[in-house]
Amino acid sequence: MSASTPRRSPKAQERHRDSERSRALILDAATAEFGAHGYAGARVSAIAARAGVNVQLISYYFDGKEGLYQAISRQWQERQAQLAPAGMPLPEQLRRFALEAVHNPDGVRLLAWTGLEYAGSEARPSTDMFAETINELRKRQEAGDLPADLDPACLVVMLMAMTMAPTTLPHVIEGTSGTDPRSPEFLNRFADQVAILARHLGLG
C-alpha cells in the first residue's frame, strides 16, 4: 500500500488570493449590513454570517467594526471619483449618481444612513469633489450663466438630494407615480430626468 500524499502548504500567492477574496466578501457583506441598519444597528456577527467567515477574521483584517466602516468609506470615495471624473459635465455626473440606486443600492442606502446618524462628529465625507463642483458653479455665476442669488453650495446639496430620492423617498415616488421606485426601468428613467432638469437649469 502506497503512503498517502502529504498535504501541501498553500503558496504565498494562493494565500494572497484567499486573503483578497475574504476581504472582498467581508466588505460586500458589511456594505449590505450597514446599508440595511446603519452603523449603530449593524452587527459584526451579522456581517460575518453574510460573508461566510468567522468574526475573528474581521478583526484580523479590519481591526473591528470601526475599521471596517472606514474601509467602506474609502471605497465610496474611490467610487465617487469614478462617477464624476474631472471635466465631466454636471448633468452626466448627476445621472450617474442617480443610477447608483441600480448598480450599488446598498452603497446609496449607506450614504443615507450616514446622514441620518450624523451628529456633528469629526468623521466627515471627503468634500474634494463637491468643492470642485461648487467652484465650477461660481464661475458660471461670474460669467452670467447662473442667477447671482443662487448659493452654489446649497444648490449642490439639493442636486445630491435629488439623485438619492429613490432611496430616501420611495414612498413619495410610489404615491405620485404609481411606480415601483426600485425597479430598474423607473430608476433609469429617473436618472435621465435628473440630467434633463440639470441641463434645463443651465448646469451643463
Rank of each mutant, 00 (worst) to 15 (best):
S2V: 11
S2D: 12
A3T: 04
P6T: 06
R7A: 14
S9M: 13
P10I: 13
A12P: 12
E14Y: 03
R15K: 15
H16D: 15
R17A: 15
D18N: 14
E20G: 06
R21G: 06
S22T: 15
A24I: 04
L27D: 02
L27F: 03
D28C: 03
A29Q: 01
A30E: 00
A32V: 12
E33S: 04
G35Q: 01
H37Q: 08
G38P: 00
Y39W: 13
A40Y: 11
G41E: 06
G41P: 12
R43Y: 07
R43C: 08
V44I: 15
S45G: 12
I47M: 08
I47A: 01
A49V: 01
Q56W: 09
Q56F: 09
L57H: 05
L57S: 13
I58S: 04
S59T: 09
Y60I: 14
Y60C: 10
G64V: 07
G67H: 02
Y69D: 05
Q70G: 06
A71L: 01
S73M: 08
R74P: 00
E78F: 05
Q82F: 08
A84H: 03
P85H: 07
A86W: 04
G87M: 14
P89I: 13
L90D: 03
Q93V: 15
L94Q: 05
R95D: 02
L99W: 00
L99V: 02
V102I: 14
V102T: 08
P105W: 01
L111A: 11
L116D: 05
L116V: 04
A119H: 10
S121I: 02
E122Q: 12
A123R: 12
R124T: 10
R124S: 06
P125N: 07
D128M: 09
F130T: 13
A131P: 05
E132K: 13
T133I: 14
E136R: 12
K139V: 12
E142M: 11
G144R: 07
D145H: 13
L146P: 04
A148G: 11
D149P: 02
P152I: 04
P152Q: 05
L155C: 08
M158P: 03
M160E: 09
A161L: 10
M162H: 05
T163G: 02
P166Q: 08
H171A: 14
E174R: 06
G178P: 07
G178A: 10
T179N: 06
D180H: 05
D180S: 09
P181E: 09
R182P: 03
S183Y: 06
S183D: 10
E185R: 13
F186G: 02
N188T: 15
F190Q: 04
Q193H: 11
A195E: 07
I196S: 11
L197K: 10
A198G: 04
H200K: 09
L201N: 06
L203W: 03
L203H: 05
L203I: 05
G204P: 07
